[in-house]
């Protein structure tokens, strides 16, 4: 045995007896391996079983993982890989257990809830849909097409109103409310178009000031193609005014709500 091997054995010893990073919970009655794709530089990803449930984990030192793009993508990539063959209950990013026993205890104590949710989520996947618009373009269109706004704007530019200041204020308010109306009409049109091909949907808070819709859709695997077609069709319908950012399939992050009773382990 060379020195190098001995050395790597020493460094791997405390690891294999150390913490476990948990990615998701699946149903599986046999030991599974998912390759060296884990967080923290390609750790081996494997399962810890309790009866017919299994936690998908990798070895980790006891650390707090920052939600950097690299770490979040590693977490995501494992879940995507596991999802190809299993229905998954995703764990939130950064969940580290101190030992394998603690992971088994998690499965044991939450067995019923995990089983119920796995059954409900059987063959369901999530898609994310973010819809953005170009505010300047929308304002320009409104100024052209909305009679009231156009009239007021003309008055301001010709200085025919007595108070330009108040006219401007009024113009701002008119534009704001017209935009709000327009945005909620787009959003409800999109929801209506996708509702028939989705099991459920959830709207999250839009990110940044260009986004008008930030939604997640739960879709039956059998409906994946139909959902996909409908999204593309809808995005074509609005291609002049709206940009669709469509992503997935994801594990059902937005549709699993199990409040785990976890406490800090020191």
């Amino acid at each position: 045995m060379t020195d190098q091997v001995a050395e790597s054995e020493i460094t791997s010893l405390p690891l294999s007896d150390g913490g476990r990073y948990v990615y998701c919970i699946i149903r599986s009655d046999r030991q599974r391996e998912f390759g060296s794709i884990g967080i923290g530089g390609g750790q081996r990803v494997f399962t810890v079983a309790y009866q017919d449930l299994a936690a998908v984990v990798s070895d980790t030192p006891i650390v707090i993982y920052d939600p950097t793009r690299e770490n979040v993508l590693a977490h995501e990539f494992v879940n995507e890989t596991v999802m190809r063959e299993h229905t998954v209950i995703p764990m939130s990013f950064g969940t580290v257990f101190r030992s394998e026993d603690d992971v088994t205890e998690l499965l044991r104590s939450t067995y019923q809830a995990f089983s119920d949710v796995l059954e409900k989520m059987q063959d369901k996947i999530e898609f994310g849909l973010k819809v953005l618009w170009d505010r300047d373009k929308v304002v320009a269109t409104l100024e052209r097409e909305n009679d009231e706004i156009r009239r007021l704007k003309d008055e301001i530019s010709r200085h025919t109103t007595t108070s330009t200041y108040f006219a401007r204020m009024q113009l701002g308010r008119l534009i704001d409310s017209a935009m709000e109306e327009l945005s909620s009409r787009y959003v409800s049109d999109i929801h209506e178009a996708l509702k028939p091909v989705a099991v459920a949907s959830r709207s999250n808070k839009p990110i940044g000031d260009r986004m008008i819709l930030n939604a997640a859709f739960l879709v039956d695997r059998a409906q994946e193609q139909a959902f996909d077609d409908r999204v593309k069709e809808t995005s074509r319908k609005y291609e002049d005014v709206l940009a669709f950012k469509y992503s997935g399939p994801w594990p059902p992050y937005n549709f699993v709500n199990i409040k785990l009773k976890l406490e800090k382990a020191d």
């Binding site: 913490g19 006891i62 650390v63 707090i64 993982y65 939130s92 950064g94 969940t95 580290v96 257990f97 101190r98 603690d102 205890e105 998690l106 104590s109 939450t110 785990l260 009773k261 976890l262 406490e263 800090k264 382990a265 020191d266």
Partner: peptide, 12 residues
Amino acid sequence: KATSGGPVRVAR
């Protein structure tokens, strides 16, 4: 206060 991240265990 409670923090997220770091080692956890099932609350006994």
